[in-house]
Amino acid sequence: MKRPTLTRRGSRAATALTLFASTLIVAIGFPSVASAFSRGDVATAEITSVSLIQAILIGLGYYLSQSPWLVGLGFFTLYRPLVAGFIVGLIMGDPGQGALIGAAINLIYLGFISAGGSLPGDPALAGWVGTTIALAGGLNYGAALALAVPLGLLGTVIWNARMTVDSIFVHMADKAADEADIGGVVRANIMYPQIFLFCITAVPVTTFVYLGTKFITDLINGFPIWLLSGLAICGGVLPAIGIAMNMRFIFRGSAAPYFFLGYLGIVAGGAQMSIMVLAIVGVALAFLHVTLLGDRVSQHAVQKAPSGASNGGGSE
């Protein structure tokens, strides 16, 4: 229950900014310098431009993913790149491919759990903006994933801004409570923070998507072949982080061996073996495991959340 002090908050913001700057340099600066030296004649993919209305809808979608207006379900639905990609696909007129790109981006953010007010990376920004750019530029799988990395980092800056500024509205709620003003407390919980959230999510995303998509897709499509194949390699490597983040939560105790069982099941079963089949087998095995453990089950339960959740827990 330790509250972050002002200095801790400051250093957190500083770390986030440094991280962000270094990512930008790595993900955009370094490749563009490299491409300037070794640009070959690469056939650029066809680029669909993003219209203003599409950009506004995408910005609105990103805002809704963090706002309460969908009965509080935004965090579980629109916040996930799988759903975000699908909806961006709908907006851009290709839901099937949008869902596919969203699914790819979702892989690297699979286990990104937000607990105790901290957020390791923002899947939503990666999902909404990443899918838009990948869809508009016809990027390949690896490039879409590589693009999602700096975006997820940029999202934490937005998150930190929101979490810091929203503290002001708590004091407004305090003042309203002093005067027994119920409406004031409600306004402090909904109106001011949501107006602020709209300003720091919808507005920049719309602007960025509308003005920046062509620039970034041009940049990536102009990469030399070796760099593009480097991004393609990323497509195979980066999902390891999303999966390992999730393993941090559940890969422990007597349930851990099932991870290897699932892995070998897919390797042995090849393309025929789907995750759905595995899940059905998993339900049977879970039942068997719990039954066989009997009364010893409480010794095997995983109730200790990883370090991030130690300051009081809580989600989102």
Partner: peptide
């Protein structure tokens, strides 16, 4: 764990 192993593969 089982599904996660499958995803990894």
């Amino acid at each position: 764990n089982l599904v996660l192993g499958g995803l990894a593969a």
